[in-house]
Simulated assay, not measured.
Amino acid sequence: MDDLQFGTRNKRGDWAPNAHLEVAPFWLRPFSILRVLRWVPEYLFPWNAFHMATALLYWFYVVPDVEVMKTLSWGWALWLYVVNAAAIFVMYGSVELFWYVRRKQGTRFKYNAKFPSEQPSDVFWFKSQNIDNFLRSFFISIPLWTLVEVLFLHAFAAGYVPWLSWSDNPWYLAALVLLAPAIHEVHFFAIHRLIHTPLLYKWVHSVHHNSVNPSPWSSLSMHPVEGFLYHAVAFWHLIIPSNPIIAMFQLHIAGFGAVNGHIGFDKLEVTEGTAIDSHAYAHYLHHKYFEVNYGGDGLIPLDKWFGYWHDGSKEGDAMMQARFEKKKARMNAKAART
């Protein structure tokens, strides 16, 4: 595919899409039902459908029997960790292998023309972003993912929280499935904005932001505090009446879905004329500029409402710079008073 039909490349070789980011169409004015209907398939496929499919596969083939989960034990907890780690290794590793190691499409549709392996740095373990990100994912974030998983499954199995059945509550639970990505965006925005406060950024979130040029292994490369808070989105289903399958779906939106914002390519070419949209641009801009796009890609447009939205346009650059100038002026005034 010719990526220059869809975007532009600067002198450094970095690529950017022509189309600017937009929030979900039901927030746009004037309201258009046709625009919403065209958006629905994109909302469902491929990513949310994939996360639901993995949640169902887990529930029927991986999750232990309810009687087993009524008791906390290392046996079934380690089993879940092994499955989670293997699934991430296959999913993230496949993207890493084909698009970063073999570089099957070169830098077509790649936001940053450089590859992490070309940029060793002392901020990473062994001066390698890939090794650092891989180790943090498998020895910090995936164990914390599994901890959250074990705790909510045990809570449902032991009867600590309501377990709504699909036969008695089909419409409510179906609506909750459709709302799960929105819950993720609100939760992610809240914890993400929190760990961007100066103290928490320095000691917690800077670990993730060391990967200015993110790749698949960057997706779950986090400080333990961030890793737990991020996956704890599944605990919302211990507060609202729910079902463990939906809690698993919620967890998979976070765990498997983390790769979306870190793929580094706008499109992944599957065949010569077919590509999968990554929906990675909003979060790539966050890694590039640090203080924009704290949430998702506009399903719940909290970034727009709070003034952090960057749509990839020159106008977005100007709004960001104006906000940075105001922040700098406030900091200088505070320093002067001190």
Rank of each mutant, 00 (worst) to 15 (best):
F124E: 12
I263A: 00
K114Y: 06
Q129T: 06
N332L: 13
N84Q: 14
A275Q: 09
V259H: 08
P30R: 09
W47G: 00
A55T: 00
A280N: 12
W74S: 11
T146G: 02
R193E: 02
T338A: 08
E315C: 01
M320C: 06
S219T: 10
P170R: 01
T197E: 13
G257I: 02
V161R: 12
R136H: 14
L173S: 07
S206F: 04
F126H: 15
G227K: 06
D168N: 10
V207H: 07
S137Y: 08
N10L: 08
D65E: 14
W305F: 10
T71N: 14
H262N: 07
W236G: 02
I240A: 04
T146E: 01
S73T: 11
A247R: 01
Y160I: 05
Y308N: 09
Y92T: 01
L4M: 15
N130T: 13
P17M: 10
S221F: 07
P244V: 04
T146V: 06
G13L: 10
H196N: 10
R193G: 02
H20S: 12
F189S: 08
R108T: 07
G264K: 01
A254S: 14
H196L: 09
Y43Q: 01
I246S: 03
W15D: 06
D317T: 03
M319K: 15
F115V: 02
Y61D: 02
F189P: 09
L268D: 01
F45A: 03
R38T: 05
L178G: 02
A175L: 15
V204N: 14
L37I: 12
G106K: 07
Y43A: 02
W27R: 02
L147G: 08
N84M: 06
G93F: 02
F189A: 04
I253C: 06
I191L: 13
V270Y: 11
Q250A: 13
V207S: 09
E42P: 00
Y58T: 00
V123D: 12
H310F: 11
M69T: 05
F109C: 03
